[in-house]
C-alpha cells in the first residue's frame, strides 16, 4: 500500500569521498545502489518522495579535482561539480564561452544555482510529472506512458524523437554544450572515456530508462570545451512560464561564425523539445554562406520544426521553437 505523500528522507548510507580514486572505487563497488550526489537539487525530491530507493549516496562535491575551471591546450575544462553560479560568473567562461555562462545563469533560481552543479544539470532526470510522481511508467521500468495518451497532460513534452516515452531534456546547459561542441569526460574505475556532448544524451528509442549513456560505475567528471567556437557570435534564450525557478518550455543555444554579415559556420541546439538536446544540423547546413536576415531566420525556423509531432497540448512549442531559431539567426 502506498501513501500519496512521504516527504521524509529514508535511511541511506552517505559516502563522502575526498579523492577521485575513492569516488570511482565506490561507484564501481556500489553500482546501481550508489546514487551520485552533486548539489542534491534533483536528488532529494526523488528520495524524500521515496520514488527512487538507492541504498547509498556518493557525494561528489568534496572532490577538488572535479571542481573549477582550467585552461587546456585547446580550450577549457570545467569540473563536473563546479556550481552553476561559478560557471555563470567565471571571467574566462564569460569572455570566451559566454553562451555557457548565459545558459548556466538561467538555470532554475539563484539558490539552486548556488548549490547545483554543471554535472547535475547535465545528467538530471526528466521532469515529466507522471514519472516524477513515482508512477511505474516506461521510464521507470513499467509498460505504459501516462503522458502520451488522448487525455495526457503533455504541455511540456516532446515534439521530436519520442518512442513510447515523450519526456524531454530539462537542461539549459546541455544545448549550450552541444552548440559549443564540448566533450564529456567520463571516468570509472577501469579508466576514462571521452564522449561528444551530442552523443552523451540518449533518447528513449535506444534507452528508455536513462537520459545519458553513462553506465553503472561511471561518473561524469569534467566537460571540455574546445576553442573551435570560442568568441563566436552566441545566442541563448530560454522561454519558460516563469522568469525564475522554472524549466524551459523551449530553449535555444547557438554559436555562429559570421564575416561581413555572412554566416561562415553555425552550430545550434534546442532543449525541451526532445529527450536529448536537439542538434539542428539541417539548419546549420542551410545557414552556411548565407547573409543574416529576418527572412533567413524565418526560413531557418521553418526548417528547424520540420518533422515535429505535437501531442495534445504542446503545439505551441512548434512556433515557439521556430521563433527562437529565427531570433538566433537574425540576432
Amino acid at each position: 500500500m502506498v501513501a500519496t505523500s512521504h516527504d521524509v528522507m529514508p535511511d541511506i548510507e552517505l559516502y563522502q569521498p575526498a579523492d577521485e580514486a575513492n569516488a570511482l572505487e565506490l561507484a564501481d563497488t556500489l553500482g546501481s545502489d550508489g546514487w551520485l550526489l552533486g548539489g542534491g537539487q534533483d536528488t532529494y525530491g526523488w528520495l524524500k518522495d521515496r520514488n527512487k530507493s538507492p541504498s547509498a549516496m556518493i557525494e561528489l562535491t568534496g572532490i577538488d579535482a572535479w571542481k573549477g575551471v582550467s585552461e587546456t591546450g585547446d580550450g577549457i575544462e570545467i569540473g563536473a561539480v563546479t556550481t552553476l553560479t561559478e560557471i555563470a560568473e567565471h571571467s574566462l567562461i564569460q569572455s570566451r564561452f559566454a553562451l555557457l555562462a548565459t545558459a548556466a545563469g538561467q538555470v532554475a533560481s539563484p539558490q539552486i544555482r548556488n548549490v547545483g552543479t554543471l554535472g547535475g544539470n547535465l545528467i538530471q532526470d526528466t521532469r515529466c510529472w507522471y514519472y516524477r510522481r513515482g508512477l511505474s511508467c516506461y521510464r521507470a521500468g513499467g509498460n505504459i506512458c501516462y503522458a502520451d495518451s488522448p487525455e495526457g497532460l503533455n504541455r511540456e513534452h516532446a515534439l521530436f524523437g519520442s518512442s513510447r516515452c515523450v519526456a524531454v531534456s530539462p537542461s539549459d546547459t546541455a544545448p549550450a554544450l552541444v552548440a559549443l561542441d564540448a566533450t564529456m569526460v567520463v571516468s570509472s574505475a577501469s579508466g576514462q572515456r571521452l564522449i561528444a556532448a551530442e552523443d552523451f544524451f540518449v533518447g528513449p528509442a535506444r534507452d528508455i530508462l536513462n537520459m545519458t549513456v553513462l553506465n553503472e560505475g561511471e561518473i561524469l567528471t569534467a566537460v571540455r570545451i574546445p576553442n573551435t567556437w570560442a568568441n563566436a557570435e552566441y545566442y541563448f534564450e530560454k522561454v519558460a512560464d516563469r522568469n525564475v525557478w522554472d524549466f524551459a518550455l523551449v530553449n535555444i543555444a547557438s554559436a555562429m561564425r559570421v564575416e561581413n554579415g555572412v554566416i561562415q559556420d553555425a552550430r545550434m541546439a534546442c532543449g525541451a523539445v526532445e529527450c536529448v538536446p536537439r542538434r539542428l544540423t539541417q539548419v546549420e547546413n542551410m545557414l552556411r554562406g548565407q547573409a543574416r536576415s529576418e527572412d533567413l531566420g524565418a526560413e531557418a525556423g521553418e526548417l528547424a520544426v520540420q518533422g515535429a509531432r505535437p501531442l495534445n497540448y504542446n503545439h505551441f512549442k512548434v512556433p515557439l521553437m521556430a521563433n527562437l531559431v529565427k531570433r538566433a539567426v537574425r540576432a
Binding site: 509498460n143 505504459i144 506512458c145 501516462y146 502520451d148 495518451s149 488522448p150 495526457g152 519520442s162 513510447r164
Partner: peptide, 23 residues
C-alpha cells in the same frame, strides 16, 4: 496498439492489469 505508429496514436485504453497480463 499501445504504441505510437505511423498508423495511429497510442491510447491507454487497456486496463493496466490486463496490459500486464499481455506483457
Amino acid at each position: 496498439v499501445q504504441i505510437d505508429t505511423p498508423f495511429w496514436d497510442r491510447t491507454n485504453s487497456m486496463p493496466e492489469d490486463q496490459l500486464g497480463l499481455v506483457f
